[in-house]
């Protein structure tokens, strides 16, 4: 699978949500999409999921323009939105059956896959209970099962880890990472640690523009020599306007890490950058 995005722009009235975005995504590795709030991540995902029509540009899936032929994408897409939309009075089995018929799956194949997905995602025990009583994590698992129905070749996940507990987050990202082996998986998040462990490809967006596209290591290398570490007695010791990537309370004070071309503190020492530091550096110190 090959997904090419060429010169994609999206305007909401006068506001520009995306500006000249060009990317190429290939199957065989999870792509992380990171950026601060308002960067245009959700708009990009909605356009790729054929929910929005871009103002300009092309999106080619294996050479077919999905602007003109959205079904080319819809036939192979598994979409996992941030809030899983459900019919609260249906149970998981009925809900998945409904989506399977929407995806035009054959009833026998649908039944088989739903059974297997419910087992894989540990939903078998609660499969007959109404979805309105499900916790956030359980709903998310139902959403994943829905996205995986019909064996999609492209999976788009829009901030799927929001609201999940740490264990559920780890499980979800491992699952998506496993799926990425033979598919295009695009995972949008503003939690860098979600993509750090599993993404082989990273896209950083800011104000609708692609700031970086490449391997996470390349991004980390970009921030080399731009991360500084120092200790202060309390928070008032941190100079105003500095881009703080982390502040950890220790026995000898607060261990602060900042990103920038120059250290903001005389005692600051250069530190090796993490992916989070590098992302922060790339977007100019704006919080993710």
């Amino acid at each position: 699978m090959n997904l090419e995005i060429r010169s994609l722009s999206m305007n909401y009235g006068k506001a520009k949500a995306l500006s000249d975005v060009t990317l190429t995504l290939k199957s065989g590795g999870l792509t992380g999409l990171v950026g601060p709030n308002g960067a245009g991540k959700s708009t990009l995902l909605k356009i790729l999921a054929t929910l929005l029509k871009p103002s300009r540009g092309e999106i080619l899936l294996n050479g077919k323009d999905i602007r003109k032929k959205p079904d080319a994408m819809r036939n192979v897409l598994g979409y996992l939105p941030q809030d899983i939309p459900v019919y609260g009075n249906l149970n998981a089995w009925e809900y998945l059956t409904f989506l399977a018929s929407a995806k035009k799956m054959e009833p026998s194949a649908a039944r088989k896959q739903i059974g297997s997905l419910m087992q894989t995602l540990h939903l078998s025990d609660v499969g007959r209970k109404p979805l309105s009583g499900f916790s956030g994590g359980m709903r998310q698992r139902v959403g994943i099962a829905a996205a995986l129905l019909g064996d999609p070749k492209v999976i788009i996940a829009d901030e799927p880890t929001t609201g999940l507990d740490p264990q559920e987050r780890v499980t979800l990202r491992s699952l998506l990472s496993g799926l990425a082996a033979s598919r295009i998986v695009l995972l949008s998040t503003h939690i860098v640690s979600d993509v750090e462990a599993v993404a082989s490809d990273l896209v950083v967006l800011k104000k609708g523009k692609v700031l970086f596209h490449g391997a996470p290591e390349e991004l980390t290398n970009c921030a080399d020599g731009h991360v500084w570490e120092y200790t202060v007695a309390d928070f008032s010791g941190i100079p105003a306007g500095s881009a703080v990537s982390s502040a950890v309370q220790g026995t000898r004070g607060i261990r602060v890490k900042t990103v920038g071309a120059r250290p903001v503190e005389a005692q600051a020492l250069a530190a090796s950058p993490t992916l989070e530091d590098a992302c922060l550096y790339m977007i100019g110190g704006e919080a993710l």
Partner: peptide
């Protein structure tokens, strides 16, 4: 409002 329509719009229905 629930988002089900958006989800269906991403499917071939």
């Amino acid at each position: 409002e629930s988002g089900v329509l958006s989800l269906l719009q991403t499917s071939p229905i």
